[in-house]
Amino acid sequence: MTIWTRFVAIRFLRLALLLAGVAVVAFALAKLSPVDPVTAYLGPNIAKVGPEQRALIAARWGLDQPVTVQFLHWLSNLVSGDFGWSATYNAPVTAVIGSRVAASAALMGLAWLLSGVIGFSLGVIAATFQGGWCDRIIRVYAYVLASTPTFWIAILLLMGFSVALGWTPVCCAAPIGLLPGEATLLQRLHHLILPLVALSILGISQIALHTRAKMIDILESDFATYARAQGASRLDVALRHGARNAALPAITVLFASLGELFGGSILAEQVFAYPGLGSATIEAGVRGDVPLLLAIAMGTTLFVSVGNTIADILYVVADPRIDLASDAALREIGP
């Protein structure tokens, strides 16, 4: 067995164990939560339903059985591809997640890309002109925003651009009264701007600070000094040596920060009532929609874990110093 097949096999095994662990914990938390699924399902109709009927609904859903039986039942359905029925949206969980992922993918994907590109550029600029006014502005921006909660930024943006200036819509992914599918691309982009800005702002500052620190190390390295001894200008050293050497760690951080991106999207989507996966998560939580909530938890686990694995692999694949054919390459990152 080659080193890579072993690597992939062990990663898959670890992922399976992780998913199983998350399944147990998430299911246990859902069971321990004070939200009763039957009450949540009935909503205002609770007044019209007697205890007998409630027991009937509970029995129909299998809630009268022991917790372990419920868990195994859910797990076996999951393995066969049946994620259950979302009571909140009155649709199969897979359909709900499918439509939500499409809306969130644009938001999160663009935010991810923007925070990578802008954050990296800002970091490179700040380090190149370290101590100058440019560096100061970027640093203050990054520190202030890195320590600001996303939802607060989102509310400020909403108050400024949507309420006071009226440049951007107040909510949703499409004009009110239209389904997202019916809106034009321009309308959809118009609705995407604010959530995107809110979500990107945080990522930008993280990548910028990380890149700046890495760049400063590189600019003080022997090979940067040597480049200057060869007559290289400051910009030449920053781009040829600094940016190239800082790019790899920045990409790694970008992949490893997918979890934070997802967390940020939950808050941003909630504030802007953007119908993505994030707002579905909150809905599912508040309404006690256990199948949807669990499916989202599992999906997020998969998403973040794959992102981290990509970051780990990139680290060895893109670095010429690490010989891919040798065991040492993978010992570096662990299986």
Binding site: D222, F223, Q230, G231, A232, R244, N245
Partner: peptide, 23 residues
């Protein structure tokens, strides 16, 4: 000196760490 570096005065540095590892 900024004008002369490399062109008129060249440095042969001490160690391998003076070469960019990624190029």
């Amino acid at each position: 000196i900024a004008h002369l570096r490399g062109r008129r005065i060249a440095l042969v540095p001490q160690s391998l760490s003076h070469l960019d590892p990624l190029a």
